[in-house]
Every structure is written in C-alpha cells, then in structure tokens.
Amino acid sequence: MTETENNLKPRIGVFSLTGCAGDQLMILNLEDTLIELLSKFDIKSFQEASSYSENTNLDIAFVEGSVSTEHDLKTLKNIREKSSLLIAIGDCAVNGCVQAMRNKQTSIAERMIDVYGVEDNIYKTFEPKGVGEYVKVDFEIPGCPIEKEEALNALISLLNGDAPLIPDYPVCVECKLNGYPCVIIEEGKPCLGPIITAGCDARCPGLGLDCVGCRGPIKGETNAKAELEALRKRGYADKYIINRLRFFAGNFDDIQILGVKENSKGDK
C-alpha cells in the first residue's frame, strides 16, 4: 500500500481507562472482519492488540473504562485534545458501570477500610464516572461488554460519514420482535428490560433469564420509579430492587434518588 493510500484512511486509537478491557477484546473478537478493518483504518494505538503506539492526532478515539484516578483523567484529556471524534465504548466509559454501584452511597474512605483496611486514599481514587462527565463525547456505544456487531456497524457508519446507530429504546422491544415470552408478566422475574438500552437482541430474556441491565438505562428516557413499583408489586423488596438497579447504573440520578420504603422487608 502506498503512503498516500494509507494517509486517506481514518487514523484511529483504542484506549483503556479503569475497566476490564473487555470492550477492546470485543473489537478483537471481530475475527472474520479484522483483516478488512485493517485495510480501512490506520490504527495508531490499540493497547490490547499491539505494543505499538503512536502519540499522534487521531480522527477517531475509542475510549473504554471509567474515570476513577488522576491518571485516568490526564490520559482522557490528552486523548480528547488529540482526537476529532471521541467515542465512549462500553458501560464504564458511558456511565461508570459496576465500579460506580456504590457512588453517593458509601464514601471512598469507607470503601478503603472495607477493601484495604486503611482509611487513607492511597491510590488517589475518586468516584468512578463515565468519560462524558469530564470531556465532550461524540457518540456512546453501551454494553458490558459492547456487542461486537454494534461496534462493527458503528465503524462502518463512521467510515461512510454517518452517525453510528445506537438504540434508544428498551430491551422489551427486542423481546417482542423476537416473540420471546415476557419474563416479568409470565414468571414475575425481576427483569430490568423495560428501562435498559436494547441492542443485545434480548439475549437473556430469550433464554428465559431476567435482564440484569448490563447495557445501562436509556439516558433521558428511564422511568426508574416505575421499575421499582413494578417489581415491588411482584413481591421484591426495595433493597433488592435498588441494588439490582445500581449494579450497572449507580451514576444515574433517577436511580440514586430511589428510597427504600420503611416497611419493605425480606428479599424475594
């Protein structure tokens, strides 16, 4: 390939903050398409794929992981400065994910004592948040981890000059399109599908399992209070429901404000 052709390819980087690196792995799992992808993009940095890394300007930066340390924040700001588009991939980067489940519930000091037995914030951590809390994010691809097909479609859209198509409707839609029986209505299971972003093709309800919410609530559309009510009616205790809602979505305002009813006792 000539230098000119290479210059026409969008320069991309895939970066990781606090997280499990599972979203990078999902991109690498696009095995059948990887070679073709390499011919379309000029990869300047991709920690999990190669030790090669170039600190250069980028057309698109994909960032996974939440911001939970000064180091994360510094890395993120550097990426933002050097990139035309910044795309948050995975729940950690979108909203903080599982490491944010106790945000505004327990302090960092309490967590330090619970985990390390010392009160000092020796790692200089702060409450984990999505990257959008600190820098401008152009697009978000949710998931824990992301769906590789969704990531591929996003890459194709970007290559074609389109905005990536990310669902802003809940898992219920995909259950109905697939004709999967409703696990809330049929079995009274504590499914979070009605408030969780679709895109997984309702994988869990399709197997008869209740949605745990791994793709996170739909931003601006989530009726968390209704979920609490719907599960209360089916006999679940407030504490159980709120813990379940917080699991992947501790940073959502409308989940943080949910209170436990005084008379709510015992877990179903």
Binding site: P170, L177, N223, A226, A230
Partner: peptide, 13 residues
C-alpha cells in the same frame, strides 16, 4: 405517564 416505561410493548403486541 408517571408509571409508564415507554417501552413500546403495547404497540408491539
């Protein structure tokens, strides 16, 4: 609307 999820199930069935 306060108790509705806006999930679309009503339309889809």
């Amino acid at each position: 609307a306060d108790i509705c999820f806006g999930c679309g199930s009503c339309n889809l069935v």
